[in-house]
Amino acid sequence: MLFRKKIDPRCAYCVKGTRISDREVACVKCGVVAAEHHCSAFRYDPLKRVPPRPVKLHTGDLKQEDFDL
Rank of each mutant, 00 (worst) to 15 (best):
V25I: 10
D45A: 08
I7N: 06
C27K: 02
K48P: 05
L2Q: 09
K56N: 12
A35H: 08
V50H: 07
H37N: 07
T59D: 07
S40L: 11
H38C: 10
S40P: 02
R10N: 09
S40D: 13
G17P: 00
F42P: 02
T59W: 01
Y44F: 12
Y13N: 04
K56T: 13
K5Y: 06
P46K: 03
D61S: 13
R10V: 05
R43K: 14
G31R: 04
P46C: 03
I7T: 09
L62C: 10
D45Q: 03
I20D: 03
Y44K: 03
P52T: 04
L2M: 10
T18A: 10
G17A: 12
A35V: 11
K16D: 14
E36I: 08
R4L: 10
C30G: 01
V50P: 01
G17W: 01
C30E: 10
P54H: 06
A26Y: 03
K5Q: 12
D68Q: 12
I7C: 05
K63D: 11
E24H: 08
L47V: 09
K63N: 11
K5D: 12
M1R: 03
A26D: 14
P9L: 06
D22Y: 07
V32M: 04
T59N: 08
P52N: 00
V15H: 07
H38I: 00
C30V: 02
H58T: 12
P46S: 04
R23V: 15
T18P: 03
R53N: 11
K16C: 09
R23N: 14
P51N: 00
D66E: 07
R49G: 01
P51K: 00
D66C: 09
L69N: 12
V15S: 11
P54F: 02
R10M: 07
K6V: 12
C30A: 13
H38P: 00
T59M: 13
F42Y: 09
V28Y: 00
V28C: 07
